[in-house]
């Protein structure tokens, strides 16, 4: 009697083979774009359902109509432009000051000991408190939203950049030390590129926290702007108008993040993609 031995052969397919054998519709369905579109659709569906269930939740159509009304009244460009002006000055200042302070905090132990507590206090103060304080200090106008945005955003940039600077490779720092590379050149070519990811994370936080700050300051003390108009409709018990302004600004933040910040980050990391 003979016995037959059966051996199992497992063939692993190459990526080219997988690529060629996958139907086009499946590729599209499993793409990143499809995932993003699905998330957006899911959000809209949940929104619509919520507006059916609760009378105080304005649906997308109503919000769209209110937005068109605001455009036709000529309210959008003036108020939106005013908020953008305040927002970009506040976030811009927070980014510049935050990077400078973060670099110093990351490089020097003494400055870290000096600045760590104030930065932690800054982190723990919510935007709403800053908005109250700045309205009391600076009154109604541009100053209070700008300062609120700056104060809300700057600790996030500082803490991220300082963390990044502390993480700069010891080997590369030693190499720079050995060759006596001047301080300015070290900051420009070693420290700043090494902390790009941390700066990006800090700026992202700054944008998110900053827009909270600007809207709250305008809500409580602004003579115009997105926050002011949102409050106008809120006080009038017209939630559609209120939501229209919020959607407008959220949409702007998403576009800013996706098309400006994301691309800038990708560009600054092109050395990593070259591997």
């Amino acid at each position: 009697m003979t016995t037959m031995q059966r051996s199992a052969v497992t063939k692993r397919r190459s990526t080219t083979e997988i690529e060629q054998s996958t139907p086009e519709w499946q590729k599209r369905l499993t793409s990143e774009t499809a995932a993003r579109v699905t998330a957006l659709l899911a959000f809209v569906v949940i929104w619509v359902v919520m507006s059916w269930l609760f009378s105080r939740v304005p649906g997308p159509v109503e919000v769209g109509e209110r937005l068109v009304d605001e455009f036709s009244r000529g309210e959008v460009f003036g108020n939106f432009g005013m908020t953008l002006y305040r927002f970009f000055i506040g976030v811009g200042l927070a980014t510049v000051v935050g990077i400078a302070v973060g670099v110093v905090m990351g490089l020097s132990q003494l400055s870290r000991a000096f600045l760590e507590s104030p930065v932690l206090v800054g982190l723990s103060i919510p935007a709403i408190i800053w908005s109250f304080l700045t309205v009391m200090w600076f009154g109604f106008g541009d100053m209070s939203p700008i300062i609120t945005t700056f104060l809300t955003a700057v600790p996030f940039v500082v803490i991220n950049v300082a963390q990044g600077v502390r993480g700069v490779s010891r080997d590369l720092r030693d190499m720079s030390e050995t060759y006596n590379v001047p301080f300015g050149r070290r900051v420009r070519h070693l420290v700043l590129p090494a902390v790009t990811g941390y700066v990006a994370a800090g700026v992202r936080f700054a944008i998110i926290m900053g827009w909270n700050g600007v809207l709250l300051a305008e809500w409580f003390g602004g003579g115009g702007g997105v926050g002011y108009r949102a409050r106008f409709w809120y006080d009038a018990n017209r939630y559609g108008g209120f939501a229209a302004w919020v959607v407008l600004f959220v949409g702007f933040i998403v576009i800013l993040d996706r098309f400006v910040l994301d691309r800038a980050i990708q560009r600054s990391f092109r050395w990593r993609d070259s591997r």
Binding site: D171, L172, D174, S176, Y179, H189, P193, A194, W271
Partner: peptide, 24 residues
């Protein structure tokens, strides 16, 4: 003036070869 060749190359990964040469 000193030059140092380390066990590992210790090049700035985000700068080109020429920029690494000029860095020091």
């Amino acid at each position: 003036r000193m030059g140092y060749v380390f066990q590992d190359p210790r090049l700035l990964p985000w700068r080109s070869v020429m920029q690494n040469m000029m860095y020091v």
